[in-house]
Design a protein around this nucleic acid. Structure first.
Lengths: 250, 250
DNA sequence: CGATGGGCGATTGCATGCAGTAGTGATGCA
DNA sequence: TGCATCACTACTGCATGCAATCGCCCATCG
């Protein structure tokens, strides 16, 4: 079969397509955390050769979503509580300043659509697809602020961590929680519109902390299928400090 | 020739080896910014096949050191002044908190060697290899603080930006400048040893700002070989804001 | 009955082939 | 003489082959 079955209506390279496909599968919960990621299996499933899959897996490894085992096998990263804590910390370091910058460079073109969408979202609270729409808005919200910061590389880094965030976010279904998050979003928007940088920063950090607490408390990874020692990149690098239980916050 | 000429005394994968080799060449100034990066040429030069080179180039692209052109050609990233500014900003966002965290978790095992090395370095100021040793120390200094932060992912990200930093750092030869940097290093060490987080953070940010200013002022990329519109990743993504000359600082 | 070693299967790393495409140089026309 | 078009070349993307390695399973031994 020289011509594969054309995974999608390709406009980009196959590698990019495979990357997106695998990423989607990880985020969606297929390819559960800790499961081995067989290049051959993925290639067969997507109807492509192993080469682009190989490349895509390496990309995912760079993103920290896939961990190389000591051999040459790749596993979907199983995030430890430490990982989750660290990821949210870094999000604060990145998105806090981004919010502050965005307040200074605030552009109506950025902010107005966000507020409009949020208003719509708050009024149609019994929409059956409300959760999905909320997720879209959340995505849009953080991405817009990142872009509005004016620092393209910062936006790029924030986006990288949003991707990771999506991979560990399987619990955001509690309506009350989402409602609370929406309140925080609006508070941040207020600060942005008022061009109050420090306030925007503070509220963004508080917002991320809220979610950090939620994730750290619910600990959904504890009762996952993963047996005992789930793999994770950035783990085996340093043989230094013991993996002590981390203090909740500074 | 089934067995290539063994680039190095390989212990890791070929891809990793090639990655390091190319990275080194970029940092060293061979493979100047803006030059096309031919997979075939690299493969021939290193005596390996195209496959591992292809993988390595993709990795470098993920790191932002290589930019894909519209076709499928890769070029060594030519950093614009905007890029350099942004990179240093992000370094502040990452290394500032890292310093603060490191102050809180400060471990003698981390700090003592740093101070020892710095003392040696300050006494042998007429060592012919002083500049090289200084660079090593600088590397060690920032990496140690990153690790001492306790946030492994943060350390990883800081390291990523150190790599980029090395790629654009071709001017750090002014002894007076290095001397000044050493002073700042010591000031940061003082704060760390005093376990004063906020002060360490502040001094780290000031330190990075110093270098940011130096890089922005000397503008070494202006008289480089690159003709006019040097390519850079993260550039063509958004068609939004005009690439206005950036304000020096916030 | 549990642990350890050997054999087998599966999978990955690297090399190479093929085809498509972009870049480049030459040539012809205005 | 300058510009546009065309053909050629070279390089990259993807597929596939080969060999090495790793994991797993079973058999044998303590």
């Amino acid at each position: 079969m020289p011509t594969p079955k054309a995974v999608t209506t390709d406009d980009a390279s196959l590698v990019e397509t495979v990357y997106q496909q695998v990423l989607e599968r990880i985020v969606a919960g297929h390819l559960p955390c800790g499961s081995v990621l067989s290049e051959l299996a993925v290639a067969r499933e997507l109807g492509v050769s192993r080469t682009p899959v190989h490349d895509a897996v390496r990309q995912l490894a760079k993103d920290g979503l896939v961990a190389w085992e000591k051999g040459r096998r790749a596993r979907v990263t199983a995030f430890t509580p430490d990982d989750v804590y660290e990821i949210f910390e870094i999000r604060k370091y990145l998105e806090g300043p981004a919010a502050e910058l965005a307040a200074g460079r605030a552009d109506r073109r950025h902010l107005v659509p966000l507020r409009a969408t949020s208003v719509v979202l708050l009024s149609n609270r019994d929409d059956p697809e409300w959760t999905a729409k909320w997720a879209d808005f959340d995505e849009d919200f953080h991405r817009t602020i990142a872009v509005a910061s004016g620092n393209r590389r910062l936006a790029h880094e924030i986006n990288r961590y949003r991707v990771i965030h999506k991979a560990i976010n399987r619990i955001a279904t509690d309506p009350e929680l989402l409602q609370h998050a929406m309140t925080e979003h609006l508070a941040i928007l207020d600060a942005l519109e008022a061009r109050d940088g420090p306030l925007a920063r503070e509220r963004m950090i508080a917002h991320i902390t809220t979610w950090q607490d939620v994730f750290m408390r619910r600990v959904p990874w504890a009762d996952q299928s993963a047996p005992a020692a789930p793999p994770s990149p950035f783990r085996e690098s340093k043989s230094a400090g013991p993996p002590t239980v981390r203090d909740p916050r500074k």
